[in-house]
Amino acid sequence: MASNPRIKLPDQAAIGDVIEVKTLVTHVMETGNRKDKDGVPIPRNIINKLIAKFGDVEVFHAELGPGISANPYISFQMKVPGPGVFEFAWIDDQGVKLVETAALNVV
């Protein structure tokens, strides 16, 4: 299960700026190829999706496979349309959804 979401935004931004949005979440990203000490396969459980919205508009969408490291870090860019709030949603194979919001300080 995903936990401890962390979002890094610039302290302030102006309309029209292109900013970097950094996201990090704690998750084991179990590949499904490993076995426990009794030889029983550990079922796959990864975050397969990260969806970022700004206001109600989707600005970034990632589809992840088991080739992404544990505790997935993903950063992307966004052109600032105005003040608003980001909403990030991480969804894992068990359907567990973790949502975090972050406000963008627009000057």
Binding site: V18, K22, V59, G67, I68, I74, Q77, P81
Partner: peptide, 11 residues
């Protein structure tokens, strides 16, 4: 909307 096509991650 992204303004720049640049993505970072760890694999």
């Amino acid at each position: 909307l992204n303004g720049r096509a640049r993505v970072q991650s760890r694999m």
